[in-house]
Design a protein around this nucleic acid. Structure first.
Length: 339
DNA sequence: AAGGCGGGGCG
DNA sequence: CGCCCAGCCTT
């Protein structure tokens, strides 16, 4: 959870997580849908899928307890160089470095490194880690970055290692480490369809299992093409999801949700369609050919691995939705009385 | 080595 | 509005 996410953000998720999945076995036995639902709002959902897979591997390979061997840890999904070093040093007292964003900044300044590679930082950190209490040392280095050697306005006057800091001596603290991003994020416009069946249930589709927001649910949507109207893209997405709309069915614009991802910005332009017709019942089945409703899908999820569903308010609350889609759901609920 | 991959908080 | 957060995985 702490990968690329602030401690303060993680805390409430972590508490709920331990209550829901108190043991490795509980996590391994849980359906992927439950895991994703518990992760909803945290982002970087591959972390949840990796953790789930890791729990199952720990059950299978290591009898349910996390291995203390760094190589065995590194082989688990989600365990990169940092996490392996952090767990091995903090939990098992192994003398391994743990270079996170904080440590990268601290070392870049301490040694005045303009553009250190990951390997360079790892070697630098490895040479510093003591055999005695390596985990405490690693945490201290991270803590130094979090509290004193901050990205902006570092408190060098209070820094315990200021006398060793090359960047401070050379006046390059503000330039370490170098920045990366150049130019603005591309903007994407997604025509989004809010479709209700006769019972007022909402049509949702599941995203592919991997990639952006993998395995999560969303309103049918399509990227607006050149010379295409957002409403047309939304209609296209609704039809692709199996909705049956009268050809001239009127759509009502019900609002826009903008969201910034790590690599692009997306504007979801939402349209409510009337006249979702008889095929509503059909569409309750998974769209993937050959996938029967009761078939166990990856992770034993209770929802189809691919496909669509009609969700009432209760079902909607139980599905794992990205933050932007939750906002769209609120727009849909607000628009309903007028339709 | 570079790019894809969320979401929130802060200056 | 840009930057960054106890990074990982794929190419």
């Amino acid at each position: 959870m702490l990968q690329q996410t602030r401690v303060e953000t993680v805390l409430p998720y972590y508490a709920r997580w331990l209550k829901r999945f108190p043991t490795v076995a509980a996590l391994a036995d849980a359906p992927l849908d439950d895991v994703l639902k518990s992760w909803e709002g945290l982002g970087y959902y591959a972390r949840a899928r990796n953790l789930h897979r890791a729990a199952r591997l720990v059950q299978e390979r290591h009898g349910g307890s996390l291995p203390d061997d760094p190589e065995a840890l590194r082989a688990l999904p989600g365990f990169g160089e940092y996490t392996t070093g952090a767990v091995a040093s903090i939990a098992y007292g192994r003398r391994l470095p743990a270079v996170d964003g904080n440590v990268r900044r601290v070392l870049s300044r301490l040694y005045d490194l303009p553009a250190p590679t990951a390997a360079e930082l790892r070697e630098t950190a490895a040479a510093l880690v003591p055999a005695d209490r390596p985990g405490d040392f690693n945490q201290a280095l991270m803590e130094l970055g979090a509290t004193i050697c901050t990205p902006r306005s570092p408190r060098c006057a209070e820094c315990p290692v200021a006398e060793f800091c090359l960047a401070l001596a050379r006046g390059t603290v503000a330039e370490r480490p170098g920045r990366k991003r150049v130019g603005a994020l591309p903007l994407e416009i997604v025509g989004t369809a809010v479709v209700r069946d006769a019972a007022g249930r909402l049509l949702l589709v599941r995203r592919p299992a991997t990639g952006l927001l993998g395995g999560l649910w969303e309103f049918p949507g399509a990227v607006v093409g050149p010379d295409e109207a957002p409403e047309a893209a939304a209609r296209r997405a609704a039809l692709a999801a199996g909705a049956v709309l009268a050809p001239d069915a009127a759509a009502t614009a019900i609002g826009v949700v903008e969201h910034t991802f790590s690599h692009k910005r997306v504007a979801y332009r939402a349209f409510a369609f009337r006249g979702a017709g008889a095929a509503a019942a059909d569409a309750a089945e998974p769209s993937g050919a050959g996938v029967a409703p009761g078939d166990p899908v990856q992770g034993g999820g209770r929802h189809p691995a691919t496909g669509r569903t009609w969700a009432d308010e209760t079902a909607l609350a139980e599905l794992a939705l990205p933050v932007a889609q939750r906002k769209l759901a609120r727009l849909a609920a607000a628009a309903r009385p007028r339709l």
